[in-house]
Design a protein around this nucleic acid. Structure first.
Lengths: 356, 356
DNA sequence: TTGTAGGCGTTATCAG
DNA sequence: CTGATAACGCCTACAA
């Protein structure tokens, strides 16, 4: 592989001049410059990122740490980050933690000595990352925290407005006439889960609704959890007429449990999910959901990181992206308040409604 | 950040000894060894991957190039590769090409000078990669091609048995009594698409079925393509009674088009997808599909790469993974041959069948 | 068994 | 404006 020395020989200039031409670090006279560039093109020379990084104390790598790319929420985040990174000449090193703090630390340690310019991290469930990430900052890397923010986090961050999103969803159900509204939350040690629950409760409080104790069920962020918790909810008296599922996978499990109990969504029970994944469009009924742009989340995070690379003294920013309530087929008024025609009419076997 | 020199000072030994201890490249006497390790632990020292890579002419990075992580097929591949990489001490640099050969080349060029140990690539649609990847081989990297194999590819590769998978699916439809079977293929410049079509045709030939010309529709590998092509198919005379969609997203589009035309799957028309994504379980009806393990695909690719890193002289391998036909709700015998009870009975509004 | 020194490919500093 | 030259941190002959 060609190196600078060879280019210098070919162009008949010194090594330093080649570097100056390549980095624009000094105004080199045109004839020399051209000779250098010709040699570069002739050989297909590309500078060694390894040597460059070693010398500059920094590479064009961004470390990205996420729980699990198999969870359909995360590909969007990764893609958003990669696009912004790529268009700025950076590359992404992707690491999955499975929400395992040990793995997270291993990745963090292993990548630091590559001297990435930035670190974009969606923390594993239980982690307090300040210790680990501090060493990145010391190494000059820009650290951005995404989606879930550890307590006491002081660096840049991007989240969505979890509380507001949940509030709007719950409020919509209230507006439809629902009074018996349950919530299946995500793991409550996550800030995002906590905030969604807060928003849910605020909506109920505003409507002066008091829920039975078991109406709030904590679940894992997956279908199995949603299924299990819904089974519990469906056995409660009074049975809830609506469920706010704090992510779409939970909602998927809820739909499954509802069908298995020979109930119908939305006629017997309404369901709203959270995230607005593509799969909400292909379920039956189509799933209403609090949409958030995972792509924007990732893109914003990468941009924040690159901004900080460019200016270390920039004041810390906490970006909060908006959610959007997308109502599809999975919600309807409760049976006993027949104020509105149900949204789905095509299913002949649907239970007859009391009004209209 | 601590470096080897500092460790040497702390332990009161020479720089070379530290290196020997760390790399096990010479048998260092225990007391010295211990002093070195103590210093390492005390400082939390980790060797600079940049310097090490520069010196060794190779890093513990694997470059992974895929079309688009947002396509639900690819996260599994990435995860499989990352798991194998991680458990062997390697990290993955992830690049999306959007099937854009230009982008692919940019990524390839940008990553080469990081001296990754391996390159795992799912080629962009049109690319002949031999030129690009040759430079990786020269740089000592192990190159593995996954899922789609360029013509004339001579290196290691992993694919699935596309032809056999499609054959089995088509054959199953034939066995059910279908004679009017259409196929919506992926882009036919991809080997995977070609092979699936071949398998489809072989099954029909074996059953002595001759299809009208338009029964083979070429589509992009997405929902929109599947939707559009299905619309075309549904207007043909005779209308096909079954469709083999060459991936699940196409099948999703087919389901949508069928519903929009007020037809029913599987009563009016059967659909089988390809890939066996999770989403096939949550559609209505649940989608039958030719399952392949994207995770295994990625894991095998990474393993092949690491094997070659360990032994450059290993003979070239072409792994071909098996598919498995998963029959769910989206297939039934054609209406005019009432040999079997349809699989779905729950929908009251379903058209009456001619027999049974 | 341990220490020394050269060099991997860059960049940056500093004379000319 | 151009050219030497010294690091960056590590590995590895080779010498002791």
């Amino acid at each position: 592989m060609a190196n600078m020395k060879k280019i210098a020989e070919l162009a008949g200039v010194s090594l330093g001049t080649v570097s100056h031409v390549l980095n624009g670090t000094a105004r080199v006279r045109e004839p020399l410059r051209k000779r250098v560039m010709d040699a570069v093109h002739a050989t297909g020379y590309q500078p060694s990122q390894l040597a460059r990084g070693l010398r500059r104390d920094k590479t064009n790598l961004l470390a990205m740490i996420i729980p699990d790319i198999l969870n359909p929420f995360f590909p969007g985040v990764v893609r958003g980050a990669e696009d912004v990174a790529f268009s700025n000449g950076y590359r992404l090193v992707l690491c999955n933690t499975d929400n395992d703090h040990g793995k997270e630390v291993m990745h963090l340690n292993a990548l630091r000595t590559y001297l990435p310019s930035g670190l974009i991290v969606i923390p594993s469930d239980f982690s307090d990352l300040t210790a680990q990430t501090e060493s990145y900052r010391r190494a000059g890397a820009a650290v951005v925290c995404v989606d879930r923010i550890p307590r006491h986090w002081t660096g840049d961050s991007v989240t969505i407005n979890n509380a507001e999103g949940a509030y709007q969803a719950a409020n919509y159900l209230v507006g439809l006439g629902h009074r018996d509204i349950a919530c299946i939350t995500g793991p409550l040690h996550l800030t995002s889960s906590q905030d969604r629950l807060k928003g849910f409760k605020r909506a109920l409080r505003a409507a002066k609704i008091e829920s039975p104790h078991g109406y709030e069920q904590e679940s894992t962020f997956d279908r199995a959890g949603g299924y299990a918790k819904t089974k519990i909810l469906l056995r409660m008296v009074p049975r809830p007429t609506a469920i706010l599922a704090c992510n779409d996978l939970i909602a998927l499990g809820a739909l499954l449990a509802i069908r298995e109990e020979r109930l119908h969504c939305p006629e017997d029970i309404s369901v709203i999910g959270f995230d607005g994944l593509d799969l909400t469009e292909t379920t039956t009924p189509q799933l209403s959901s609090v949409y958030q742009s995972s792509y924007q989340l990732g893109a914003a995070a990468a941009q924040l990181a690159l901004d900080r690379v460019a200016d270390k003294t920039h004041p810390v920013r906490h970006l909060v992206l908006k959610t959007e309530l997308k109502i599809r087929e999975s919600v309807a008024p409760p049976k006993n308040t027949g104020s509105t025609v149900p949204l789905r009419k095509s299913r002949a076997a649907a239970p007859v409604l009391t009004a209209q």
